[in-house]
Amino acid sequence: MSATSATPVTAVDADVAAYALRLGDDALVLGQRLGEWAAKSPQLEEDVALLNLALDHLGVARSLLSYVGTIDGTGRSEDDIAFLRDEPAFTNALLMELEGGDFGRTTARQLLVASYQLPLWQALASSTDPEIAGVAGKAVKEVAYHLDHARSWVVRLGDGTAESHRRVQTGLDEVWPYAAELFERDALVDRLVARGVAADPALLEPAWRATVEDVLAEATLTVPETSWRPTGGRTGAHTTGFGYLLAELQHLHRSHPGASW
């Protein structure tokens, strides 16, 4: 957080709304993916653990999406925002929406996400936007545990059997290119960094890389090398699988317009 002069948050603030929506969509979409693991994990203890992660992300999503509905001036509820937008209106990073794949790939993604979200929420805990700072203050404790969980498993899979090493390396190679998008800057981020609302991606990336490389080294895994940097999530250009994720997420809610649940 670089700004020293905090701008008071006004009633309607399109920039803050757009930024909170990115964070909220990240949490919602990853929470949805993690929820797919119910009754499918490698062992019972892990069902409980993965669903804990899902609940943490869904909790963050609910707080942020509710906030979006107030600060963007539309008065939409968290459910309006989650269930009634089409694909192009979602601004989550592509990394969050990728299919979970096997436990190796899920775990690799968790490592990349948690290593990013830990410094992210740490920075946002002192955001000049009090709502975002509040969410961050709570999320930072949760994500510390997420990172611990991801690290524990990546190390065990990487340094476990030949089979597990192969699988987690494959999963890592598949999700790795999508991490670059997390650190992209655009005009919105620039404006909000200047206002002290958003975290500076330039400061997050070194922390992310240090954590990830440290874990991968302990796990005897190779840091993937790639020049491919898929992007588009922040502007609503999503992967094929995302449409199916939304279809599942939204169909029931949309089938009963105006109903309460």
Partner: peptide, 22 residues
């Protein structure tokens, strides 16, 4: 879980299914 009609219901259901594993 993936189809729950509201985010509140989704969280409740996740917590419940998690309890069953517990």
């Amino acid at each position: 879980i993936t189809r729950a009609p509201s985010l509140r219901r989704k969280c409740i259901l996740v917590a419940k299914v998690q309890d069953e594993a517990g």
